[in-house]
């Protein structure tokens, strides 16, 4: 019996985990619904903030409140998808520190993929719902396919960034706090209009903290499609996926050799 690390089998496994997470959520229906609604309210409050803001100032560097709606559609939808399907995206440092990796190591599936999918965040359901609502408000029919494609790319960047931040736990002491802050940093930057950042800040947001590619660039593309920036977005997500896989692998090697001194075995 050889090991088939085929994409198809891993996608099947992903669907299995979605099913079992949903079953688990249904055991606590009220909690699940409360958390979903809470997230919708949370996102709504932010949109209200921007409505007030643009009501006063009309536009900033060409960005209008309509652009903000689109930005929130992309951001909440892609964060939501990441949370629902890859719920451990921001918990990898904890998984490592609590010694839970052993479980994944003893099973015949790709460890990183398996870790990522084995949890589902219920709060994220609210993000998905809110993203779709914002999409219905902002998009014409022809924008939807592009919206889905761009959201998938944003989602990949978010998950990869979370994996990189979490993999810090392989290499340094207690990394839970730092990795959480890095991840929160990416979220925060991606909820503001890219147009307000200039110079070094803009470069950072289009490279090491790729918040620009998570939200700003997708909004520009949805408004005016531009092949060059679309390809750059695609390259960005592929590069982040690759780096995160490599770094996680390197960390895993350290873990297997037992030189990871921060694990509560």
């Amino acid at each position: 019996m050889g090991v088939k690390i085929s994409l198809k089998n891993h996608l099947k496994l992903l669907m299995e985990y979605v099913k079992i997470s949903l079953a688990s959520a249904m055991e606590y229906k009220t909690s699940f619904i409360t958390q979903t609604i809470t997230m919708v309210i949370n996102d709504t409050v932010w949109i209200i903030f921007w409505i007030i803001f643009f009501n006063k100032f009309n536009q900033i560097n060409g960005w209008t409140v309509q652009d903000m709606f689109m930005l929130y559609a992309v951001v909440t939808f892609s964060y939501g998808l990441a949370g629902v399907f890859f719920g451990n995206r921001n918990k990898i440092a904890e998984v490592i520190a609590e010694g839970k990796l052993d479980f994944y190591l003893s099973l015949p599936k790709n460890e990183l993929f398996h870790v990522l999918i084995s949890r589902s965040s219920w709060f994220s359901m609210g993000d998905v719902v809110f993203g779709l609502i914002m999409g219905i408000i902002s998009f014409s029919w022809w924008q939807w396919p592009l919206f889905f494609v761009l959201s998938l790319m944003s989602m990949s960047i978010i998950i990869s960034f979370g994996t990189l931040a979490g993999s810090l736990a392989f290499f340094m002491g207690n990394a839970e706090e730092s990795s959480r802050n890095l991840y929160m940093g990416l979220i925060s930057f991606s909820t503001y209009p890219l147009a307000v950042f200039h110079g070094a800040a803009r470069i950072i947001l289009l490279t090491i903290i790729p918040a620009g590619f998570v939200s700003g660039i997708p909004v520009e593309l949805l408004k005016n499609f531009n092949l060059k920036w679309f390809l750059l977005s695609l390259i960005c997500s592929l590069v982040f996926i690759t780096i995160s896989i490599i770094v996680f692998k390197l960390g895993l090697r350290r873990y297997e050799s037992g030189n990871n001194m921060n694990v509560r075995v």
């Binding site: 099947k12 496994l13 299995e16 985990y17 079992i20 079953a23 055991e27 015949p108 599936k109």
Partner: peptide, 13 residues
């Protein structure tokens, strides 16, 4: 969840 759900998952793994 009931253990049977985890078993089904493991059968897929």
């Amino acid at each position: 969840l009931p253990a049977i759900d985890t078993y089904n998952l493991f059968s897929k793994i």
